[in-house]
């Protein structure tokens, strides 16, 4: 059910269904009008919320109509904003958590996420041949050439 709008002398009354627009959404939308309206919010039976907007400056009927439209737009804006905030809540908490932890180096090293390798590594692997003794690598030569190692890394 959409918001019900009733024009008043110098403003509008908007009745919201709280099952569609939660109270926090209605209040956040009303908050945006505090600079140009006197705003009053009341609960009504049946989980409804009544928002009264009274222009601080007397307004023409066209302005009242625009006010109602702007308020309905703001309701939708706040509803989407809330849904987006809920969806990204865990991500924002993680980002802020990492940022705060990085201020303390000891905590940051504890919290650091290990680098993800494409293949699981074993400490005995020696893909660059660093553990091969020099003699074995260059000492004995066959036909004047260095002895070739097998392509497979040597394991200790």
């Amino acid at each position: 059910m959409g918001p019900k709008v009733v024009p008043k002398a110098n403003g509008v009354e908007v009745t919201l269904d709280e099952t569609v627009f939660p109270r926090s959404v209605g209040l956040a939308a009303a908050y945006r009008f505090l600079d140009r309206c006197y705003v009053r919010v009341e609960t009504r039976p049946g989980k409804r919320l009544l928002v009264r907007l009274e222009n601080k400056d007397p307004s023409a009927p066209a302005a009242r109509k625009a006010l109602a439209g702007e308020f309905r737009n703001e309701l939708l804006h706040q509803l989407v904003r809330r849904q987006l905030a809920e969806r990204t809540d865990a991500l924002r908490a993680a980002i802020v958590g990492r940022a705060l932890l990085s201020a303390d180096k000891a905590l940051a090293s504890e919290a650091a996420v290990p680098a993800v390798a494409s293949e699981p590594l074993d400490f005995r692997d020696d893909p660059l041949g660093i553990a091969v003794p020099w003699e074995e690598k260059y000492g004995e030569k066959r036909d004047g050439r260095p002895r070739k190692r097998s392509g497979k890394p040597k394991k200790r």
């Binding site: 926090s24 956040a28 908050y31 505090l34 006197y38 009274e54």
Partner: peptide, 19 residues
Amino acid sequence: DRLPGEFANYALSCRVVGS
């Protein structure tokens, strides 16, 4: 003239910001 309206507005802002 403005006091009750501004009082209600300020209270609503405290409610929204403080919640």
